[in-house]
Simulated assay, not measured.
Amino acid sequence: MRVYLPCTLPGLARVVAAGELGPAPLTGYAVTPALVEWYASGDTEELEYVAMTEAARASLRMLADAHAAEGGEGAATPARRVVVVAEVPDAAVSVGADVDERARVRLTEPVSLTRLASVHVDDPAAAPDIEAAVAALPAADLGDDDARFTLDGAEAHELMWFATQEIPDLLV
């Protein structure tokens, strides 16, 4: 099963150093039966895009958590969403029944670097919008329409595709 895993650039560096994404359990996003039923008119490519978008949203939350842990000032974590795409055995994936998170899955084992298919990362030019979205996330969670608009601005940026061989270049 193709799974989209949220990450950050420092997290990706840790994955490379460890040789795997883990420890399990891991939260990811995939084309699940619930997603297919909900988005019945979508083809496989569209459904995979939905799953990747959900992973990018989760990456934004990871960035917000890192920013908060770093004290909120001069954050060391680059403001770029990262989604790691992996091909994992179906037996390692548990699909939930959460209606609000139709694409969410749980991986029961770490993901080896050899299972990675690609990585998707924000262009550095998106950083100001990503930083604004990180700052707006708490207000958006409380229903603030202006903050949600700021999140939409971040989501308007398409993630760039990188082959697994290019991962070291992303970490420079």
Results as ranks from 00 to 15, higher is better:
residue 169 D to V: 08
residue 147 A to N: 11
residue 162 F to D: 03
residue 72 G to R: 10
residue 61 R to D: 12
residue 121 V to G: 00
residue 2 R to V: 04
residue 118 S to A: 15
residue 25 P to Q: 03
residue 152 D to G: 10
residue 60 L to T: 05
residue 13 A to C: 05
residue 150 T to D: 09
residue 126 A to M: 03
residue 164 T to S: 09
residue 137 L to I: 03
residue 87 E to G: 13
residue 167 I to L: 02
residue 117 A to N: 05
residue 116 L to A: 06
residue 55 A to H: 01
residue 156 A to Q: 14
residue 5 L to E: 03
residue 66 A to P: 06
residue 50 V to A: 12
residue 52 M to Q: 13
residue 31 V to I: 09
residue 146 D to V: 08
residue 16 V to L: 14
residue 94 S to G: 07
residue 2 R to N: 12
residue 63 L to Y: 02
residue 90 D to Y: 10
residue 23 P to M: 07
residue 65 D to K: 14
residue 144 D to L: 07
residue 149 F to D: 12
residue 2 R to T: 08
residue 171 L to H: 12
residue 170 L to Q: 08
residue 82 V to F: 09
residue 137 L to T: 03
residue 53 T to D: 15
residue 137 L to V: 03
residue 90 D to V: 10
residue 76 A to M: 09
residue 89 P to I: 03
residue 162 F to M: 04
residue 109 E to L: 08
residue 14 R to D: 14
residue 167 I to C: 04
residue 127 A to N: 05
residue 2 R to K: 15
residue 105 V to A: 05
residue 166 E to N: 04
residue 158 E to Y: 09
residue 11 G to N: 05
residue 5 L to P: 02
residue 26 L to Q: 07
residue 82 V to Q: 11
residue 6 P to R: 14
residue 136 A to P: 00
residue 6 P to V: 10
residue 39 Y to A: 15
residue 61 R to Y: 09
residue 124 P to D: 09
residue 84 V to T: 08
residue 79 A to V: 01
residue 96 G to I: 07
residue 160 M to I: 07
residue 106 R to D: 02
residue 139 A to P: 01
residue 93 V to N: 11
residue 123 D to Q: 07
residue 43 D to K: 11
residue 71 G to M: 06
residue 144 D to N: 15
residue 34 A to R: 14
residue 30 A to K: 03
residue 81 R to Y: 08
residue 141 D to A: 14
residue 124 P to K: 04
residue 157 H to M: 13
residue 99 V to W: 01
residue 10 P to I: 07
residue 134 V to D: 05
residue 133 A to P: 00
residue 158 E to P: 00
residue 132 A to I: 03
residue 115 R to F: 01
residue 101 E to W: 07
residue 129 D to S: 06
residue 133 A to W: 00
residue 13 A to K: 13
residue 88 V to T: 08
residue 61 R to K: 07
residue 112 S to C: 11
residue 166 E to A: 13
residue 50 V to Y: 12
residue 52 M to R: 15
residue 165 Q to N: 10
residue 92 A to N: 12
residue 102 R to L: 11
residue 17 A to I: 04
residue 113 L to P: 03
residue 11 G to V: 07
residue 64 A to C: 10
